[in-house]
Amino acid sequence: MEGFDPVAFSERYEAREFVRLSLMRCTIHTVTARDALMLQPLFQDLMRRILKTNFGKPLASVDLGRATERSRALVEERPMTAGEIGKVLIEEWPDSRPDALGMVSRHLLAMAQVTPRGLWQRGGLARHTTLQHWLGKDLNADVTPDAMVMRYLAAFGPASVRDLQLWCGLTKLAEVVDRHRGELITFRDENGVELFDLPDAPRPDEDTPAPVRFLPEYDNVFIGYKDRARVVSDEAAEAVWLANVNYPVFTVDGFLRGTWNLDNTKGKATLSIRPFKPLPAADRAPLEEEGAALLAFHAKDADHDITWGLHGD
């Protein structure tokens, strides 16, 4: 991330080189345009199942094929939010619900979020059009999960099949890993679970120092694994919210040690650091140094302040 320029990154959304769309676990991700066309078909069945699970009852009397094509026509005429789509479709299916009808397009079409949504310090409502319309290209209909699995291991290995499946939301990926065993190296963790990695991937010694890090909500350091003990400190494991990882968190020596929040209003940016337990000065100093860099990145023209407390206070 050295020298990362968020404005230049935003410009690549506007140039349609990068795309925001629903993929792994049916949640929103940023990927390249090429990967969007390759990955989206892998998750179509998952999205269909989630639609049935979450909205099966209000959609029971809806012709999903017709609702899908009606939605396609609407969003290819102009990008729309799910709420806007639902308000139109409810006129044809008044026995359903607008929120459920609005989800038909997200789950049954390849939908891309259009700018200014996602742009650095701009944003906007989550309006969508079809991925094909946004990029002017067809989906890769013949794709298999093999390339995605190998790229997952390149990023997150050593990892188990359960880790992989939790990260992406797909099942039956053991057979994919088995197809590539000859290209992988294997390990066993403390519980005997088989782990896979690429032979030439970096695997630092367990005593290698890990710099402090401020991580966002739902960071892949958690979502990437079923077994999160590799980063979860004892005090973090006691927190009831950990299963959802719905706070920005920071790590010290590679383990969760607390939460943080950044408030940027009225020309002043304040970073609040909230450890689970009091930290020694030797740990506070690098956090303040990294925190100053975080403030400079998010609010370079504002006055900066760092405050300390305890999580839950």
Rank of each mutant, 00 (worst) to 15 (best):
117 R>C: 08
72 R>P: 06
127 R>T: 06
64 L>R: 14
88 V>C: 00
48 R>W: 06
71 S>P: 12
71 S>K: 04
39 L>M: 11
63 D>E: 11
88 V>D: 03
66 R>T: 11
64 L>Q: 12
58 P>K: 08
109 L>N: 11
108 L>M: 15
125 L>N: 09
65 G>T: 03
44 Q>F: 09
126 A>M: 05
73 A>S: 11
80 M>S: 15
58 P>G: 04
114 V>I: 15
48 R>E: 07
122 R>P: 02
125 L>H: 01
98 P>C: 13
94 P>R: 05
70 R>N: 10
53 T>D: 14
96 S>A: 12
65 G>F: 09
115 T>E: 12
81 T>I: 02
85 I>G: 00
91 E>L: 12
101 L>N: 09
56 G>F: 04
45 D>Q: 09
96 S>E: 11
48 R>V: 07
54 N>K: 13
113 Q>T: 03
40 Q>E: 14
48 R>N: 11
110 A>F: 07
78 R>D: 01
98 P>H: 02
48 R>A: 15
114 V>Q: 08
96 S>F: 14
63 D>S: 14
71 S>F: 04
56 G>I: 07
107 H>P: 12
85 I>T: 01
64 L>E: 08
53 T>P: 01
68 T>Q: 14
46 L>R: 10
67 A>K: 03
95 D>T: 15
73 A>T: 13
99 D>C: 01
52 K>S: 07
39 L>D: 08
84 E>V: 02
43 F>Q: 10
74 L>D: 02
71 S>E: 06
123 G>S: 12
86 G>E: 03
79 P>Q: 07
73 A>Y: 11
47 M>L: 08
80 M>I: 01
40 Q>K: 13
83 G>F: 04
98 P>T: 12
51 L>T: 04
103 M>T: 08
41 P>G: 14
79 P>R: 04
80 M>Q: 13
116 P>Q: 09
92 E>D: 13
112 A>G: 00
61 S>E: 14
126 A>S: 10
48 R>G: 14
40 Q>C: 09
90 I>M: 03
53 T>V: 07
50 I>Q: 15
57 K>F: 11
72 R>E: 05
96 S>H: 10
